[in-house]
Computed example of a mutant assay.
Amino acid sequence: MKIAVIDGQGGGIGKYIIERLRKELPEQTEILAFGTNALATAAMLKAGANEGASGENAITYNCGLVDLIVGPIGIIVANSFLGEVSPRIAEAIASSSVPKILLPVIKDRIEIAGYTSQPLPHLTDDLVSRVRRYFEYE
């Protein structure tokens, strides 16, 4: 199983996701880090990703080559992360037939009705639980 973790800016959310997935998933799980920039990718590689790549082409190319995509919801919003998520990145991720599990963490111009703010560790607990359930059925 291959999981793509996508993040931008400093990669802090992606780093935290990867650390948690590494603790919870089988050792043979392949976790790939895709950052909108090299700093984000480096942080996720340091957290335990098997491989990583940076930039628009790496992200758009790999969206269909993995079993699951995870990251903050901003990865499907064009121009989020202070413009780091290009419209092409957002479209490639959102249009990919690959299932996505996204954290409702967004600072940009979007509010999610019905969502109550929770700390990142609680949100990540839910994300990891959903990833585990997803792979139990395969």
Rank of each mutant, 00 (worst) to 15 (best):
L39H: 06
G12A: 15
L65E: 13
K100N: 10
G11C: 03
H122E: 08
A113V: 15
A40H: 03
F34H: 13
R22T: 12
R22L: 14
D108M: 10
R20Y: 13
L45T: 03
A33D: 01
I112P: 03
D126H: 05
T124Q: 01
K15L: 06
T116Y: 02
I110N: 13
L103E: 06
S96P: 02
I69L: 01
I69R: 14
E91T: 13
E138C: 01
L32H: 03
N79F: 11
I101L: 13
D67T: 00
E24W: 11
Y16S: 15
V85T: 11
L123P: 02
P72G: 14
A33K: 04
A92P: 06
I75V: 13
V85K: 00
L21W: 02
A113C: 04
E27V: 15
L32N: 03
T60Y: 09
T36E: 12
L45A: 09
I73E: 10
I106L: 09
T116A: 04
V66A: 11
V70D: 12
G48M: 10
S117R: 15
G11D: 04
G10S: 15
E27C: 13
I6S: 13
T60N: 10
I101E: 05
A78Y: 02
S97Y: 06
L45F: 01
A47P: 03
L25C: 06
L45V: 01
A113E: 11
G64N: 14
D7L: 09
S97E: 13
L25Y: 06
I76G: 01
S54H: 08
L103Y: 09
G83T: 05
G74Q: 03
P104W: 15
T124E: 00
L32Y: 10
Y137N: 14
I110A: 02
G14F: 11
T41S: 07
Y134I: 12
I93H: 08
F135Q: 08
I73L: 07
V98C: 07
L103T: 05
S97T: 11
F135A: 13
S86C: 03
V77D: 06
I110D: 05
A90S: 02
E24F: 10
L68M: 08
I76C: 01
A4F: 08
E91R: 04
G35D: 14
G48H: 06
I75Q: 09
A43K: 00
S117W: 15
L123C: 05
G8L: 10
P104T: 12
P72F: 08
L120V: 07
I101S: 00
L82C: 10
K107D: 10
V128A: 00
I101V: 07
S80W: 04
L123A: 04
N62T: 13
G35E: 07
L32G: 00
A38M: 06
G8C: 01
A90H: 03
L68W: 06
A43I: 01
Y16A: 15
L21K: 14
G48D: 07
